[in-house]
């Protein structure tokens, strides 16, 4: 059983002091330990942005891809080696702007990958521009008079797109966040954990204090049962997605279990040579 220490690297962090991403990192490492993962069979796929640096700080196999494309890379990696525990990570820009196309399709494809989105409602690495989750009227360098667009509601989108696991955590609420990531990893299918991860440098509106006052914790509501798509949507709508906890989960068979002829043995461990009988069978379809 690997320890927390084994999931750490010696890399010094590039994040600003106080960044919410530290909490996300810590919770991911705790969740990996809790599920009994080991660094060699864990893979983290990250996108571009402050969040994309997370792979530098977790001792595992890491691939840091192009902006917005963490999910397709995670899909390919999981199909290449289904024994790996594959996590993808990115920010709100990576997930919901440039990567939105992949996000929607990953949800309906339901490959067994856990996606942790570090959502701070702002573009940090490019020094403060409006993001798809920024609130209407939010003032940034690219929207000096306030953002003209309505924000994306990623959780409602996910629930309606056919997601089988949707949760939201807050980087300051460690035990809940680690537990949500753990549940996501254990879920046999695609799991989305959107994490409120405040940017202390560029977002002076959606601060730690603001979130602490605004977020409603579903764990404190014994009446909420996260197994009903309609009720999940209703709750997200009334709260304007300012909730934490497990929002929706259903029984799920992952994509890789549904592919015709796809084996339990990972592709990487299979013999690459085609045998003569199979080959003749293939050629016979061309006769």
């Amino acid at each position: 059983m690997a320890t927390l220490q084994e999931f750490r690297t010696s890399e010094k962090s590039w994040w600003c002091p106080g960044c919410g991403d530290f909490g996300v990192l810590a919770a991911m490492q705790k969740a990996l330990v809790a599920v009994g993962a080991n660094p060699a069979s864990t893979a983290i796929v990250a996108g571009i942005g402050c969040s994309g640096k997370i792979g530098n700080y977790i001792n595992s196999y890491n691939i840091h891809v192009t902006h917005g494309r963490a999910l397709p890379a995670a899909l390919g990696l999981k199909l290449a080696n289904r024994d790996l525990m594959v996590l993808a990570a990115g920010g709100d820009g990576d997930a919901y702007a440039i990567g939105m196309g992949h996000f929607m399709h990953a949800l309906r494809r339901n490959v067994n990958v856990t996606y942790v989105v570090m959502d701070n409602h702002i573009y940090g690495l490019t020094k403060g521009q409006t993001s798809p989750t920024s609130q209407e009227g939010f003032k940034t360098k690219t929207s000096p008079k306030g953002s003209l667009e309505r924000p994306i509601h990623p959780l409602m989108l996910a629930v309606s797109a056919g997601a089988t696991f949707v949760a939201q955590g807050f980087s300051s609420w460690q035990p809940q966040l680690a537990s949500l990531i753990q549940k996501g990893i254990e879920h046999p299918g695609f799991s989305l954990i959107n994490v409120i991860s405040p940017c202390v440098t560029y977002n002076k509106v959606n601060t730690y204090d603001w979130y602490k006052q605004s977020l409603q914790n579903l764990d404190n509501d014994p009446d909420y049962v996260p197994n009903d798509r309609t009720k999940a949507l209703a709750r997200l709508h009334v709260t304007d997605e300012l909730v934490t906890g497990l929002i929706y989960q259903e029984e799920s068979t992952p994509y890789e279990d549904l592919i015709p002829g796809f084996k339990d043995t990972p592709l990487v461990h299979q013999n690459l040579h085609v045998d003569p009988n199979t080959w003749n069978q293939i050629l016979s379809t061309l006769e």
Binding site: A43, I63, P72, G76, L77, L84, L267
Partner: peptide, 9 residues
């Protein structure tokens, strides 16, 4: 990108 993910794997 999926091909690259698989190649990495």
């Amino acid at each position: 990108t999926a091909v690259i993910g698989a190649g990495f794997g």
